[in-house]
Amino acid sequence: MMKMLVPLAAVIVLIIVSLAGVEAAGLEAVFGIVIPYLAFIIFVAGMIWRVIDWGKSPVPFRIPTTCGQQQSLPWIKQDKLENPSTCTQTFARMILEVFFFRSLFRNLKTELHDGKVVYGSDKWLWLFAIVFHYSFLVVFIRHIRFFVGDVPDVIHILEALDSFFQVGVPLVYITGLTLTAGVLFLFLRRIVIPQVRYISLPADYFPLFLIFAIAITGILMRYFTKVDVVAVKNLTMGLVTLNPQIPQGIGSIFYVHLFLVCTLFIYFPFSKLVHMGGVFLSPTRNLANNSRMERHVNPWNYPVKVHSYEEYEHEFKDKMKKAGIPVEKE
């Protein structure tokens, strides 16, 4: 229970801090300018640091997790996606992993039926992971309208599709709902399935609560409590043009939303969320299984002093002959 309550309390504290900071202390400039810039710098620098750190780790041998027939004799059919042996095949495998979460698609459920272990397909995690990630991506891209002066047509098309059903005014964005639903499912999964609950840590709950709070504050702002959205864009454009300013009368909930997003950005490179970059650098995914075709030499091999049998025999030939031990070379 504590594993869940601590991150929940943390998110509530974040909300209270930003509310109090803006409402009581009048720190709009801190929450609207200083923290967003800090968050952006920490996020970008943190991500680069992580990736370079990964790049420095040697991966001398091919360790892809394979689950298909590897390349063998010409008459044995290779499973090129599950066990790639060339760069192109690995690339295709990575595309499927990054865009379609192929390894989650293989998620299994293990159950005991009459004393026998039974494995069954379990696609729910894959489905909601797809829904969650793609919704978040669309929500993220949609926000570009606050950060550029002349909004590209692509964003307009995306918005039109996202509000396709034209429900209410402002039009309801489908991804706003699906993102919230996705986060809720990923949270419920952690508390309903006993095995998953057992291995869940505060670091698993915190991002879920944080993203949930971000989604809810965003939805509240757009549809219910309302903020002065033109003033919001004045603020964000001030940030983008490096000419920051704090417009009057935006409404505190905007600063709560912004502070939570900043927290997410700062937290990102130092937590499990960094799998955004990590998926590209997973040696178990991005390596071709060509160990039988190419020799991979460990770069930090210690130069071992070898004394081969040939040399040994050469050295002790006379003694060996005297003792009647057979030798290979006369």
Partner: peptide, 13 residues
């Protein structure tokens, strides 16, 4: 993206 897109684009009014 927002930084350079805004910098090279039309001035924001």
């Amino acid at each position: 993206f927002p930084f350079y897109y805004t910098a090279i684009g039309k001035p924001v009014v």
